[in-house]
């Protein structure tokens, strides 16, 4: 079985913020990591290959530095890694990204037929969850998103558990298929030293627009219907009334309740009435 995993290098977002005064970006010590959902996807693929035999190829679209995300995937057991890097890819939104990735998969498929694509559910920097379904649509593969368990593969069918509104479903679809991974799908292994060393030594293949036979007008900025108009700091709610309960505790709380029940009279009445019904 041949599995392709699509991964993305993302900034470790916890530290990116905007200075509300100057509206500039503060990226103190921002490190790039492999999107955690994508690592789960790779782990799941490696486990499938361990179960059914086969190979795992990881691909990523990004700048040359994104190679390190691919190495992370290699260290946990992916067999091959390809970086899609070309200036023509820059500025891609999800449509252009999924097009680019699917062109690469088409090429990989021609050399060695692809049975399964596994992507992370979403990337932590964008949270869009669109690239996986986009790829499935371009490729015409069976689409199975939010997969939390791969139950089995038999006679060209894959059976998985999907997390959906109000519960989960067990669903069976034809291969080739595209899965997106929930975090529960697999727990990422700690690479062994020989695997880590293999990953560090591996020469990542780099493909550009020509290598994947892509239509220039569908790539990067040109191929992206959406564009960023502006970015800004999240809106700040204006501050309200403050009560200092450090000094005069009783009075402060009493003052607060007084203000609350006067200013929000109707709201509070409604809430207390509903609460009393609920209790009865």
């Amino acid at each position: 079985m041949h599995i392709v995993c699509c991964v993305k290098q993302v900034p470790d977002t916890t530290q990116v913020k905007i200075d509300p005064e100057t509206n500039t970006l503060i990226r103190a010590g921002v490190e790039s990591i492999c999107n955690p959902y994508d690592l789960v996807a790779v782990e799941a693929a490696v486990q499938l290959v361990e179960r059914y035999t086969g190979r795992v190829t990881v691909i990523s679209m990004g700048p040359p530095q994104a190679e390190s995300a691919l190495r992370e995937c290699l260290s946990i057991g992916a067999n091959e890694a390809i970086l899609l890097s070309d200036r023509a890819f820059a500025g891609a939104d999800t449509l252009a990204t999924s097009y680019t990735l699917s062109q690469a998969i088409t090429k990989i498929n021609a050399a060695e037929p692809v049975d399964l694509i596994i992507c992370g559910k979403q990337a932590i920097d964008g949270d869009t969850a669109q690239t996986g379904p986009g790829i499935a649509t371009w490729m015409g593969y069976t689409q199975l998103t939010y997969v939390s368990e791969i139950i089995g593969i038999e006679n060209g069918n894959i059976t998985v558990r999907r997390e959906i509104e109000g519960g989960c479903e067990v669903i069976q679809g034809r291969l080739p298929a595209m899965l997106t991974a929930e975090l529960e799908l697999a727990s990422i292994r700690y690479a062994t030293l020989p695997e880590l060393i293999r990953a560090l030594r591996y020469e990542v293949k780099v493909w550009g627009a020509k290598d994947i036979n892509a239509a220039p007008e569908k790539l990067g900025l040109k191929g992206s219907p959406t564009s960023v108009r502006e970015i800004f700091a999240p809106p700040v709610r204006g501050g309200g009334i403050s009560f200092d309960a450090k000094e005069k505790k009783e009075q402060a709380v009493e003052d607060f309740l007084g203000a609350l029940f006067t200013k929000e009279k109707t709201l509070m009445e409604e809430i207390l009435i509903k609460a009393s019904y609920a209790q009865e």
């Binding site: 920097d125 970015i231 800004f232």
Partner: peptide, 16 residues
């Protein structure tokens, strides 16, 4: 929100 909610972006879809 983008970048884990720390930044807001306004996006347009101009020609499609």
């Amino acid at each position: 929100p983008t970048f884990g909610g720390s930044i807001m972006a306004t996006i347009l879809c101009r020609n499609h």
